[in-house]
Protein backbone atom coordinates (compact mmCIF):
# COMPACT_ATOMS: atom_id res chain seq x y z
CA UNK A 1 0.00 0.00 0.00
CA UNK A 2 1.20 3.51 -0.79
CA UNK A 3 -0.21 6.80 0.42
CA UNK A 4 -1.67 9.27 -2.07
CA UNK A 5 -3.08 12.69 -1.21
CA UNK A 6 -5.67 14.34 -3.47
CA UNK A 7 -6.28 18.03 -2.87
CA UNK A 8 -9.56 19.44 -4.14
CA UNK A 9 -9.75 22.88 -5.69
CA UNK A 10 -11.12 24.31 -2.41
CA UNK A 11 -8.21 22.85 -0.46
CA UNK A 12 -9.97 19.81 0.98
CA UNK A 13 -7.46 16.98 1.33
CA UNK A 14 -8.10 13.27 0.94
CA UNK A 15 -5.33 10.91 1.96
CA UNK A 16 -5.91 7.35 0.89
CA UNK A 17 -4.06 4.04 0.75
CA UNK A 18 -3.70 2.72 -2.75
CA UNK A 19 -2.66 -0.71 -3.87
CA UNK A 20 0.40 -1.02 -6.05
CA UNK A 21 -0.70 -1.87 -9.59
CA UNK A 22 -3.84 0.24 -9.69
CA UNK A 23 -3.88 3.74 -11.19
CA UNK A 24 -4.12 7.12 -9.51
CA UNK A 25 -7.54 7.46 -11.19
CA UNK A 26 -8.89 4.12 -9.93
CA UNK A 27 -7.50 4.68 -6.45
CA UNK A 28 -9.51 7.91 -6.29
CA UNK A 29 -12.73 6.24 -7.47
CA UNK A 30 -12.27 3.26 -5.14
CA UNK A 31 -11.90 5.62 -2.18
CA UNK A 32 -14.74 7.96 -3.19
CA UNK A 33 -12.48 10.95 -3.73
CA UNK A 34 -14.70 13.50 -5.53
CA UNK A 35 -13.70 15.45 -8.62
CA UNK A 36 -12.64 12.69 -10.99
CA UNK A 37 -15.21 11.50 -13.53
CA UNK A 38 -13.22 9.00 -15.64
CA UNK A 39 -15.95 8.74 -18.26
CA UNK A 40 -13.96 6.39 -20.50
CA UNK A 41 -13.04 4.07 -17.62
CA UNK A 42 -9.28 4.46 -17.95
CA UNK A 43 -8.72 4.37 -21.70
CA UNK A 44 -6.99 7.75 -22.04
CA UNK A 45 -9.89 8.83 -24.25
CA UNK A 46 -11.98 11.41 -22.40
CA UNK A 47 -9.61 13.51 -20.29
CA UNK A 48 -12.07 13.67 -17.37
CA UNK A 49 -9.54 12.36 -14.83
CA UNK A 50 -7.29 15.39 -15.14
CA UNK A 51 -5.01 16.11 -12.18
CA UNK A 52 -2.16 18.50 -11.57
CA UNK A 53 0.72 16.57 -10.07
CA UNK A 54 2.51 18.33 -7.22
CA UNK A 55 5.59 19.78 -8.90
CA UNK A 56 8.06 18.05 -6.58
CA UNK A 57 6.62 14.72 -7.73
CA UNK A 58 6.81 15.40 -11.46
CA UNK A 59 10.26 13.78 -11.94
CA UNK A 60 8.99 10.49 -10.46
CA UNK A 61 5.60 10.60 -12.20
CA UNK A 62 7.07 11.48 -15.57
CA UNK A 63 5.60 13.10 -18.66
CA UNK A 64 2.58 12.08 -20.73
CA UNK A 65 2.71 9.72 -23.72
CA UNK A 66 1.77 10.98 -27.18
CA UNK A 67 -1.76 9.62 -26.86
CA UNK A 68 -2.21 11.30 -23.48
CA UNK A 69 -0.67 14.49 -24.81
CA UNK A 70 -3.24 14.65 -27.65
CA UNK A 71 -6.10 14.49 -25.12
CA UNK A 72 -4.55 16.90 -22.61
CA UNK A 73 -3.79 19.36 -25.37
CA UNK A 74 -7.51 19.96 -26.01
CA UNK A 75 -8.12 21.07 -22.43
CA UNK A 76 -8.00 24.87 -22.25
CA UNK A 77 -7.04 24.66 -18.58
CA UNK A 78 -4.13 22.33 -19.08
CA UNK A 79 -0.95 23.37 -17.25
CA UNK A 80 2.66 22.18 -17.22
CA UNK A 81 2.12 19.54 -14.50
CA UNK A 82 -1.21 18.30 -15.91
CA UNK A 83 -1.62 14.55 -16.25
CA UNK A 84 -4.47 12.15 -16.84
CA UNK A 85 -4.61 10.13 -13.64
CA UNK A 86 -5.67 6.95 -15.45
CA UNK A 87 -2.25 7.00 -17.08
CA UNK A 88 -0.30 7.08 -13.79
CA UNK A 89 0.27 3.56 -12.43
CA UNK A 90 0.64 3.34 -8.65
CA UNK A 91 4.12 2.08 -7.76
CA UNK A 92 6.10 1.84 -4.50
CA UNK A 93 8.13 4.76 -5.74
CA UNK A 94 5.07 7.01 -5.57
CA UNK A 95 4.46 6.51 -1.83
CA UNK A 96 3.44 9.94 -0.52
CA UNK A 97 2.32 11.30 -3.91
CA UNK A 98 0.34 14.53 -3.89
CA UNK A 99 -1.96 15.54 -6.76
CA UNK A 100 -4.22 18.57 -7.08
CA UNK A 101 -7.70 18.29 -8.58
CA UNK A 102 -8.93 20.90 -11.05
CA UNK A 103 -12.01 23.02 -10.39
CA UNK A 104 -13.70 21.43 -13.42
CA UNK A 105 -13.32 18.31 -15.49
CA UNK A 106 -13.98 18.74 -19.20
Amino acid sequence: MVKITYIEHDGTQHQIDAEVGTTVMNAALDNLVPGIDADCGGECSCATCHVMVDKTWMPKVGSPSDAEESMLDLNPERVENSRLSCQIPVTDELDGLVVNLPEFQF
Binding site: D39, E43, S45, T48
Partner: peptide, 20 residues
Protein backbone atom coordinates in the same frame (compact mmCIF):
# COMPACT_ATOMS: atom_id res chain seq x y z
CA UNK B 1 -23.56 2.75 -11.26
CA UNK B 2 -20.97 4.24 -13.63
CA UNK B 3 -23.70 5.96 -15.63
CA UNK B 4 -21.17 8.35 -17.17
CA UNK B 5 -19.41 5.52 -18.99
CA UNK B 6 -21.46 5.67 -22.18
CA UNK B 7 -20.55 6.33 -25.80
CA UNK B 8 -22.98 9.12 -26.64
CA UNK B 9 -20.32 11.85 -26.52
CA UNK B 10 -17.77 9.76 -28.35
CA UNK B 11 -14.22 9.29 -27.11
CA UNK B 12 -10.79 10.44 -28.18
CA UNK B 13 -9.87 13.74 -29.77
CA UNK B 14 -13.33 14.26 -31.32
CA UNK B 15 -15.20 13.79 -28.04
CA UNK B 16 -18.19 16.12 -27.82
CA UNK B 17 -16.99 19.53 -26.68
CA UNK B 18 -20.48 20.60 -25.53
CA UNK B 19 -20.96 17.64 -23.20
CA UNK B 20 -20.99 19.72 -20.02
Amino acid sequence: ARARQHLSFGFGIHRCMGNR
